[in-house]
């Protein structure tokens, strides 16, 4: 479990440096594979079918469907580059490092002596790094990836502190995530048509 957490955090750090959309989706895919593996490993240890099913769902939705949709969108968006980032890659990695420290500090402060401290802190760090990516990056696709990173963090949280949510909830969450990516995909596509770009800094007409 610890190895997995380290790997997940590493991929999240990589993501803060990436501005190429294709690479970003690839990193998300790698993260989803790790999470699916984790589910299956826990299933193997506890011998409960539930975890295998959750792992299988992760493979179907997060390793196959969502990256497929995202890759398809990226393919259509030629000439799109991340240009208006709020922070440079170096600064955003630094921010992610700061967030991780904060997450640990926060968990120690709010819940001293909690059993799965590392997993809890890493999950919260992952959620916050996802949020940071949404705030720092301006390309629509990178923001969608950020959202999925947040969700991966939540999945890790569920997996580590409670050994996974009930299957029906897992199913609902996966379904929502899938539809969310599809809806955001449609909107990204429409952005490209109406604004001729998927840079979200262009979205500043509605104010006041």
């Amino acid at each position: 479990m610890n190895l997995l957490i380290i790997l997940l955090m590493t991929t999240a750090f990589f993501l803060t440096r990436v501005t190429n959309m294709r690479t970003a989706v690839g990193i998300f895919l790698a993260q989803s594979v790790m999470i699916a593996l984790a589910s299956i490993i826990i299933g193997f240890e506890t011998g409960e079918v539930h975890y295998y099913l959750a792992g299988l769902l992760t493979v179907v939705i997060k390793v196959a469907f969502i990256p497929y949709i995202l890759f398809k969108i990226v393919k259509r968006l030629k000439n799109e580059r991340e240009t208006n980032s709020l922070l440079s890659p170096n600064l955003s990695s630094l921010a992610a490092a700061g967030t991780t420290v904060l997450a640990y500090g926060f968990i120690d402060q709010a819940l001293p002596g909690v059993i799965s401290r590392d997993a809890l802190a890493a999950a919260i760090a992952l959620v916050l790094i996802g949020l940071q990516i949404i705030m720092i990056r301006r390309q629509a696709v990178l923001q969608i990836v950020g959202l999925n990173i947040m969700e991966n963090g939540l999945y890790l949280l569920g997996l580590s502190v409670t050994n996974g949510l009930p299957l029906i909830l897992e199913l609902g969450i996966f379904f929502d995530m899938l539809v969310a990516v599809a809806v955001l995909g449609i909107l990204t596509y429409r952005l490209k048509i109406s604004y001729a770009s998927t840079d979200t800094t262009l979205l500043r007409k509605l104010k006041g």
Binding site: I134, A140, Q143, L147, A180, V183, L184, L187, R190, L191, S194, Y195, T200, L203, R204, K205, L206
Partner: peptide, 11 residues
């Protein structure tokens, strides 16, 4: 404007 609103809404 509608796309902008929807994007912000979902995000």
């Amino acid at each position: 404007a509608a796309i902008e609103a929807a994007w912000k809404y979902v995000m």
